[in-house]
Amino acid sequence: ADAYVLKFATLAPAGSTWMKAFDAWGKELARASQGRLVVKFYPGGIAGDEPDMLKKIRFGQLQGAALAGHGIGEIFPPARILEAPFLFRDHAEIDAVRARVLPAIEKGFRDNQYELLAWMEVGNVHFFSTRPLANLDELARRRIWQWQGDRFIAAFFDANGWAAVALPITEVYPALATGLVDTVVSTPLASIALQWSGKTPYMSTRAMATGIGAVVVSRKFFGGLPADLQALLKRTGGPLSQRLIADTRRDDSKALALLARRTQPMTAFQQVDLAAQAARARKTVEALEAARYLSAELDRQVDTALADHRRGAD
């Protein structure tokens, strides 16, 4: 029989933590299917920004992708509640809540023409800047990168009165180099993988949230596979997710330690009133619910699961 080819795109560059896991996954699929399921990788953004990847999936050039929050927001926006600022206190909370709401998220992806194979993370979100930051008000005068088309981040920036510069992620590096952008919100691991960290000698030491990610294939491709290959994809998804999350957390904290030595802290962030920030984030979440970007129902599920976990943990 002919081999099924899964053309798979990601922004992660070849040789990065993520691509290593994907490569191993591709080999495992080819081995377990005896060559009937072949993954062709298009890493490092050669298929374009995440919205471009999704367009190419809709037009049938690609069948799958590894996406960060922005791409997930183009498929099933409510899932982004998991990266709302100041929602979780640690990874254990994230793991507990995710376990509870993942079925709902999987259904959300499926209803929007995608099969969610593996959940992943891109690391803890920090501010990186070419300049120091004496107080938070200064951020209003900064050129903060905002992922073009990302309504979720845009809402939080708006709530803080920050005038962002909207760019595709592939344009961020030259923008940092030419001064079009001077501040980015990113994770230590991604900052190093994408080489942004060389341009940003200042970093906020406190994480705001943990960036989410997902490995997806289109429903059209998934539905066209024979049952055993469908089962194989779903079966390998769990271990892939575990490896991606574990490797990302390990390498992200290594990257944070490394960058902590090589950068200056953005001191303004150390004096932030956490309670006030969390309240502002909560308001933004409510606005996004009203705009039907986030789902009030899923958000309540998250709140309940988090409260249950905290009761059990305390």
């Binding site: 919205p51 999704l54 367009k55 809709r58 037009f59 183009e74 088309g149 990302d150 309504r151 845009a154």
Partner: peptide, 10 residues
């Protein structure tokens, strides 16, 4: 048509 049905951002 695809842009119209699947807008990215606003």
């Amino acid at each position: 048509l695809d842009e119209w049905r699947h807008p990215s951002g606003q």
